[in-house]
């Protein structure tokens, strides 16, 4: 089984790897690149724990092949913080205790960040539907929604709106 050579960008840095044709992007991230922040909860695109951003769109990395990353721009949970500073979504997750076990957290934060990249004025209902693809079994989503809405207000203030 010969491997494919892939050249891509991950979290703003150039990346190269070899992967097998059937390997998912999630497998590549976790097993080839040591980026274990993206989690496997179902491998069928139903739980969102493996959510990444690919060319600006959120994707379940378990439904994407490793070879499909060729030439793309990928952001994983490891790339959400702004250097040493947490992204407002990350900071608000901490402040609002929006995580209990923390396993769904990477996927939720990536998805929420992508939402706020799109709009800084989501309604709670819009945020709930946007995040409906990310399962959390611990929190009942209450504190997650509060964190996301609070992060949006911080980012609105940052943007001077």
């Amino acid at each position: 089984m010969s491997k494919h050579h892939v050249t891509t960008t991950i979290n703003g840095e150039p990346a190269e790897y070899l992967c097998e044709a059937q390997q998912t992007m999630l497998d590549v991230l976790r097993d080839e690149l040591g980026l274990t922040g993206s989690k496997e909860g179902c491998s069928s695109g139903d739980c969102g724990a493996c959510t990444i951003i690919c060319d600006g769109n959120i994707v379940c990395s378990c439904l994407m092949l490793g070879v499909e990353a060729e030439g793309r721009d990928i952001t994983t949970i490891e790339g959400i913080a702004r250097g040493d500073e947490l992204h407002p979504v990350q900071q608000k997750f901490l402040e609002h205790a929006a995580l209990q076990c923390g396993f769904c957290t990477p996927g939720l934060i990536v998805a929420a960040k992508a939402l706020l990249d799109t709009t800084l004025n989501p309604t709670e209902e819009e945020a709930r539907y946007w995040l409906a693809g990310n399962l959390c079994r611990c929190t009942g989503y209450d504190k997650i929604l509060r964190a996301v809405m609070d992060a949006a207000s911080v980012m609105r203030a940052e943007a001077g709106r």
């Binding site: 274990t36 922040g37 949970i77 490891e78 947490l86 990350q90 997750f93 901490l94 923390g102 990477p106």
Partner: peptide, 21 residues
């Protein structure tokens, strides 16, 4: 009071080590 959990940062940046990690 409601301080930030000590393991919080690791869990929001994807660094916490779960069973399969």
């Amino acid at each position: 009071t409601r301080p930030i959990r000590p393991d919080g940062v690791d869990k929001v940046i994807g660094r916490a080590s779960f069973g399969a990690d």
